[in-house]
């Protein structure tokens, strides 16, 4: 507010406003509209008020049951993903070299999974895990370990989780690596002089200094994993049964499978709201953590 204002700057933002209006605001309004309507085809719509929302949030209805079941699956999935990827990412970042030509090699290798399109990742793992022709599936079965993600719920979950860990741990590792690189050498030297063990260095210096990048990593990984669609859809198609049917898959089933536009619209709005709330919580936590730091290093 108290910075000097340059009015011309608004013109530069105008294209973004237009793009956002067409790609987000107008579709969103359409969705809000659908969520209040019912239709029996022929482009005939009837007013339904908050009916869909009531049904959605009532576990005794079919829609409500499906919603809550998939919501739980999503929450459990995100929790598992975070519990594996965050510590694993930190470990990978810590074990990376800090200088020399090996740094570039490590960075390229880490970046590879991030460069592969989502549906390709799905296809790779779908084939990789097949018991008849997949390297992983065939090997496991021939070792006497029964593994079949099409018929066994646990195998399906394991596959989806391992796939996500393979795909996204790199992101966490790269963020942590950037955080680690920003720690001045003097800290490590001081810790050495203070006789700190490897673990003490991690607890006293590296973890506190990675604080902020870790929050970003958690935020990104939560949002992405909570919205997961492509990979499980390609690999398991939501099965066996509904065991890997996440909210997004449920949503697509309702909207495009059954063509229940009203139900789907209501579901997507609630889905959206959950993500917004969680993001807000993360954002608040992050900015508070930032405000606790002194404004300037060494300021008196």
């Amino acid at each position: 507010m108290d910075k000097t204002v340059n009015q011309k700057a608004w013109f530069l933002v105008l294209p973004v406003f237009l793009v956002v209006a067409f790609s987000a605001v107008i579709p969103l309004m359409t969705v809000v509209n659908y969520s209040m309507q019912d239709t029996f085809g022929n482009n005939q719509f009837f007013w339904n008020g908050v009916g869909w929302f009531k049904e959605l949030l009532d576990p005794s209805t079919d829609l409500g049951e499906r919603f809550f079941a998939s919501l739980w699956r999503n929450l459990i999935f995100s929790a598992i993903i975070l519990a594996i990827e965050i510590p694993l990412g930190i470990v990978v970042a810590l074990s990376m070299p800090r200088e020399g030509w090996t740094v570039a090699v490590c960075l390229v290798i880490l970046a590879l999974p991030l460069l592969i399109p989502f549906n390709v990742v799905g296809t790779i793992w779908q084939i990789f895990g097949r018991p008849d022709i997949g390297l992983l599936g065939y090997t496991l079965n021939s070792l006497g370990i029964p593994y079949n993600y099409v018929s066994n719920e646990l195998d399906a979950w394991a596959t989806v989780i391992v796939m996500d860990v393979w795909h996204w741990t790199s992101l966490v590792a790269l963020l942590c690596y950037a955080g680690l690189k920003s720690i001045p050498d003097a800290y490590y030297q001081a810790a050495q002089i203070d006789g700190a063990s490897r673990w003490a260095v991690f607890r006293a210096i590296q973890l506190p200094k990675m604080n902020r990048v870790l929050l970003i990593a958690v935020l990104l990984r939560f949002m992405d994993s909570f919205m997961i669609y492509t990979e499980p859809f390609v690999v398991t198609g939501g099965g066996p049964g509904n065991s890997t049917t996440f909210i997004s898959i449920e949503l697509v089933k309702i909207a495009l499978g059954q063509f229940d536009l009203g139900k789907a619209a209501a579901l997507s709005l609630v889905y959206n709201l959950i993500i917004l709330i969680v993001c807000w919580v993360f954002y608040t936590v992050m900015t508070n953590a930032g405000a606790e730091r002194p404004q300037k290093e060494g300021a008196v």
């Binding site: 003097a186 030297q189 002089i193």
Partner: peptide
């Protein structure tokens, strides 16, 4: 190694363990 030399050092910029 540095640990075994029994020296202490004060650096140009203060080194403080933030969480402590």
């Amino acid at each position: 190694s540095t640990q075994k030399r029994n020296i202490a050092q004060v650096f140009q910029f203060p080194v403080i363990y933030d969480t402590m």
